[in-house]
């Protein structure tokens, strides 16, 4: 069977997976210029179709960005990676329309993230600075309405505009977590993470030294991937229960956290309510264990509530 086979085309700029049947046409595009090789894609993929291509460093600077590669045999066009990609490098099209099937079928939540602009609170004299300052060039000036516009599709919610505009922009980031830089542990003269950081949270200060402005961090973790001091991981198993059956997943945990110069932790993510094993699995793999557990506990609580509600007189029990 040749028809319906996935065709992969790879160039310097993008990887395109194309699967054309007569009644269905699925396309997935990885924009490698936007990709920072943050590892979220490989982590979230339920079919292990995405592999990480490590960065190439030279004298502490980035020579070639980290990236990904995709196995067309394994990809099932679920769209999870396109939802979770922190730099919006992945676009999934179904019959020409942008769509993530997992979201359409409520097997994956919508992330709660936004970037709103309050024209009234903005000093227009700072217009050019704010536009220039945006690391992803998604802010543009709409002369007709005399206002600033954000390309929501490609905005990575880094909050640079929020700071630059003195709060006229309000950004909600999906991920909460922490980022820690310990320069004393750095390889001397290495600035690779500043080269890869999509938000300029990691940057080179006036003295030529590495600096962190953690407010801008979107917790993508690309810096950890390029850091020459690699995280050492040990595998362990995570199990969770779904519909009466316990499922076990292989998971990895970092053992040398105290030796890493840069550590990004993802604690929790803002998302809409969804009942899905795929989402739980993704969370377990993306965030630290606690995030996954919280999610599962929350699920259990909700289900308990539903059950009680359904019971006769359950509502009153719940009210107590």
């Amino acid at each position: 069977m040749r028809r319906g086979a996935t065709v992969k085309t790879k160039t310097e700029q993008r990887i395109v997976l194309d699967r054309k049947m007569v009644t269905l046409h699925q396309t997935q595009t990885w924009d490698l210029d936007r990709c920072v090789g943050c590892q979220i894609g490989p982590l979230v993929c339920p079919k292990d179709a995405i592999s990480h291509v490590p960065a190439v460093l030279e004298n502490g600077r980035l020579k070639q960005r980290a990236s990904v590669d995709i196995d067309p045999e394994k990809c099932v066009f679920c769209g999870m990676c396109s939802v979770m990609c922190p730099t919006n490098a992945i676009t999934m099209l179904v019959n020409g329309k942008e769509e993530a099937p997992v979201q359409k079928y409520e097997a994956f939540p919508l992330l709660i993230e936004s970037n709103k602009f309050n024209r009234d609170a903005f000093d227009m004299s700072r217009r050019d600075f704010v536009i220039e300052n945006c690391p992803t060039d998604v802010i543009s000036y709409d002369a007709k309405a005399d206002t600033l516009k954000v390309d929501q599709k490609y905005c990575i919610r880094c909050r640079q505009c929020e700071v630059a505009s003195d709060g006229a922009f309000t950004v909600v980031q999906p991920w909460q977590g922490s980022v820690t830089l310990r320069r004393e542990l750095c390889v001397e003269g290495c600035l690779a993470c500043a080269d890869i950081c999509p938000t300029r949270a990691l940057h080179v200060d006036e003295n030529g030294a590495l600096a962190l402005a953690d407010y801008y961090c979107i917790k993508c973790g690309a810096c950890m991937q390029v850091c020459p001091i690699k995280a050492e991981v040990e595998p362990y198993e995570v199990s969770f229960e779904y519909a009466g059956t316990t499922y076990t997943r292989e998971h990895e945990r970092i053992t040398n956290l105290d030796q890493l110069p840069i550590v990004v932790e993802r604690w929790r993510v803002g998302h809409t309510e969804v009942q899905s094993g795929a989402w739980v699995a993704a969370l377990i793999r993306l965030a630290d264990d606690k995030a996954g557990e919280t999610e599962i506990d929350r699920k259990r609580a909700l289900r308990r509530r539903d059950l009680l509600t359904a019971l006769k007189g359950g509502r009153s029990l719940l009210d107590k």
Binding site: R3, G4, A5, M21, T23, L24, C78, P101
Partner: peptide, 12 residues
């Protein structure tokens, strides 16, 4: 949520 080519339909 997953659509894959149906072998029975010859992938059409």
């Amino acid at each position: 949520p997953i659509d894959v080519p149906n072998i029975f339909e010859e992938g059409l």
